[in-house]
Design a protein around this nucleic acid. Structure first.
Lengths: 249, 249
DNA sequence: GATTAAATCAATAAAAAAGTTGTCGTAGTT
DNA sequence: AACTACGACAACTTTTTTATTGATTTAATC
């Protein structure tokens, strides 16, 4: 290696260590604050967010949050997809939801708990920014509109949690995998590649069943003409009947 | 699924959400505080650590730290191995060190920076506990002996960083991969499986060279009788000559 | 301009992970 | 007691990732 390229390499390393957020260009900077949920912020509030945020590129497979780790901030996903899940013993995970651009992760940690109560992992590279919880708290206290938005988002997530619990509680395999299919399919309009990003184990972990059962059920749904399996992509053909199966449980 | 097992499952989930640290038994609890570097703590100080810590099981492949994310705590590895690295553009990482049981990660974040300046990932499942930086700060200020230990550890890591920079700066391929081999081999006594946990890309990222070059050099070292390659394991045969190559650069 | 060091590219081989299928066991349910 | 709804295991296939090798290209040094 030449000394010049060594120096370039070193400079890159030093920049990385100093960690002014990778990929943060002016363009993207503006982009952040333009996200819908930050529109109600006053200039001073926007400045507070800006000052107490850091932007991070999570690579596919990186954890955005780790269940049990201290949480001093909330994460806002600008770009990319992630999944949120709870870890049990062994490698028995239970998938809670897909995190899309424009959504928060770790809000609950801001309001109450000091630790993340779930893990989440990037399904694709994710551009994320982290805001320290003190900043969020401060702003909510002085800007009711913003607070309302935050609470609304938090409640939505909670409502979904209840649905999830109901599913796990009362439905059996067919209904659960139908729920999972309907859920993931509902995201497909925005994220056409979503099914390709999920393994059979992921689908199983959303439904809370074994991987083998998931494989068998998907095949059987295909045979019954409810869905089509194209490699990893899944096309919902008979939406109505899936809903029916979901209801029957 | 039977309702009883559903309830058991639910209970497991609820416990996970509540996240009293997975796997923390009395036995392990005692084990923590017995780690050498905590021996100088007074009972009250030990209690402070205990109160402001949380214990987490990082699964193989999980990030312990993410470059650029807010760091409100330091991590102490109880069990398992991890690697620390800096992220560049693309997927160009540079491996800094292997983190062994009994070592801290993220100390620098406690003392100065508010964000982690490197990433780290579990090479095996890792039992880790996290201590909030305020607790560490408080204790250091009142317990000089403990502070000394912390500073010493921090300095050691820094010294290694300088060596690493020197290597990257002045040596070429042969010397670098020799350094990498010597470094990893020095950990083999404590962790016999260490080489199996590292891919050729990992070795290359330690040496700061391309994966292909690493493969070729390792083969050539084998031909010259310096090392033996057994599947993923590597045995250093001619330690002295490797040192020589390392020195020559 | 010739030489050297090392990255990049492309093609292939080998190993690991993911997906699939059938069989069996177990715990509830009827 | 028979039945149902699964999970668990084992064997196997497919896909993906990692490793390997040779050829080519780029840059820097001599």
């Amino acid at each position: 290696m030449s000394s010049r390229s060594i120096i370039l390499t070193l400079r890159a390393i030093v920049i990385s260590i100093d960690m002014k957020p990778i990929l943060e260009t002016d363009q993207e900077f503006i982009c952040d604050i333009q996200a819908p949920c930050f529109q109600t912020l006053s200039p001073e509030e926007a400045e507070l967010v800006r000052a107490s945020k850091t932007q991070v590129l999570f690579r596919k497979g990186d954890n955005l949050t780790k269940q049990g780790a201290f949480a001093s901030y909330a994460l806002f996903v600008i770009k990319g997809l992630a999944k949120q899940y709870i870890e049990g013993d062994g490698s028995k995970n239970f998938n809670l939801r897909i995190i899309q651009p424009g959504e928060f992760v770790g809000l609950s940690s801001v309001f109450t708990k000091n630790t993340f109560n779930y893990s989440s992992v990037a399904l694709t590279d994710c551009q994320v920014f982290l805001v320290e919880k003190d900043a969020i708290t401060t702003i909510i206290k002085q800007n009711g509109q913003f607070g309302f938005t935050m609470i609304k988002r938090y409640c939505e997530q909670n409502a979904n949690l209840f649905d999830t619990l109901r599913t796990v509680m009362y439905k059996q395999m067919n209904g659960r995998i139908a729920d999972t299919l309907l859920y993931v399919d509902s995201l497909k309009a925005e994220n056409p590649e979503i099914f390709q990003l999920l393994s059979r184990k992921d689908m199983a972990d959303f439904a809370g069943i074994s991987t083998e059962s998931a494989v068998k059920l998907l095949k059987s749904f295909e045979k019954d003409g409810l869905i089509e399996l194209h490699e990893k992509d899944i096309v919902v053909v008979n939406h109505k009947e899936l809903l029916e199966i979901s209801k029957k449980g």
